[in-house]
Amino acid sequence: MNAQTNTKESTSVVLVGVGGQGILLASAIIAQAALTTGYDVKTYEVHGMAQRGGSVLAQVRYGEKVYSPLIPKHEASVLASLERTEALRYVDYLAPHGLAVVSDQVIVPVTVSSGAATYPEMDETALKTYFPRLVYVSAVERALELGNARAANVILLGALSTKLDNLADDAWQKAIQTCVKPKFVDLNLQAFYLGRELAKNA
């Protein structure tokens, strides 16, 4: 039994958003790509009550050996958010020099509509003060250009994949083919490479 495993060698990814946005598919694809590459993989996701419009979180860790499926604070290489300000709720997870990938989509919670809370003013410049390494994407708009708003999650996935250089292009392709229904594979591959392109330009 190797008790001296250095956990810093494992790669951690946090995905956040609002229930129903497709976080689970994105985390499943990362996990599958890591598994195909031969890594030990653990993931954790929220089920049940919190799914009903609540703030949701999915976590993926991979490496030679992974113990905790829950990512410790300040250890995520990437924090991806499908909603504009949700990333701020989980800023503590991001490691120094970590990459944040944020969709500009705003989902106004009922607490704001009812007047009990306010939605903070936030744009790319403001987000950059919290996330020095930021890829800010109009993911829903770009997904609609591809023909399906639901591909926004995979555009973000493409963007965040640029930070995960221990997973090869081939592994991502295979993972997308494994996790997505056959008729949506082409759409999702397009979305994935669009995301990669957007991150390069950022």
Binding site: G53, P96, T111, Y119, P132
Partner: peptide
């Protein structure tokens, strides 16, 4: 080490 600016109060997202 970087000092982050204070994070604005985020609206709660309770399950609804």
């Amino acid at each position: 080490d970087a000092k982050l600016p204070e994070i604005p109060t985020l609206p709660n997202r309770p399950p609804v």
